[in-house]
Amino acid sequence: MTRINRDSIAYVVIIIFCIVMLTWAIPTYTPAYPGYGASAALVPNVAIGVMLFMACLSLFFVGMASYLKKPLPVEEREFPEDLNDGSGFTQLGRTDMKHLTAIMLPCVLLVVAIEYIGYALASVAFLMILQYIIGCRKWMQLTVVATVLTAVLYVTMRYGFGVPVPGPQFF
C-alpha cells in the first residue's frame, strides 16, 4: 500500500464518519437546547467539523499530489527505524488483517464465553489459544502459563482486591 493509497482510504473513511456524525448521530443523540448556555451539540459539532475540514483539505492535497505526480509533503519522524519497510509508511496488508483477526477473535470469544463457562475455563482456554496463535507449540508451556496466570489473577482479584471474577462462580 503506498502512502497516497493509505492516506486516501483513511481520509475517505473519516469524511464518511464525520458526515454520519453531523447528519445523524449528533442531532439524534444530543439533548435539545435548554435555552441557556451553549447548545449540547456545539462542541461535538466543532470537533467533528474540524475533523471533516482537515480530512477534506488533506484529501485535496493527496489528490493534487497524485494528479500532478508530486511527492507528498515531508513528514519528519523521530524514529524512522520504527517503520516496517523504511519506505515512509507503515505496512497494512492482508497478512496484517489476518493477524489482527487472529488476535481479536479469541478476545471477543473470551468476552462471550466467560459469561457462560466462567472465568477459569474461559481464561485457560483463551491463553492456550493465544499462545498457540503466536507460535508456541510446547504443550507443557501452553498449559502451565495459562493455568498459572489464570490462578494468579484469580487470587489477586478475589482476595487481593475483593473483586468478583466475571462470569459464573465455579470455585
Binding site: 443523540y29 444530543t30 435539545a32 448556555g37 449540547a40 462542541v43 470537533a47
Partner: peptide, 19 residues
C-alpha cells in the same frame, strides 16, 4: 474530544452520544 464528550452533558444533565 468527541469520544470524551460521550456521557452526561454538563448543562442539561442528560445523556449525549450514548446511542
Amino acid at each position: 474530544i468527541t469520544v470524551g464528550l460521550i456521557g452526561t452533558e454538563p448543562v442539561t444533565a442528560l445523556p449525549r452520544l450514548a446511542f
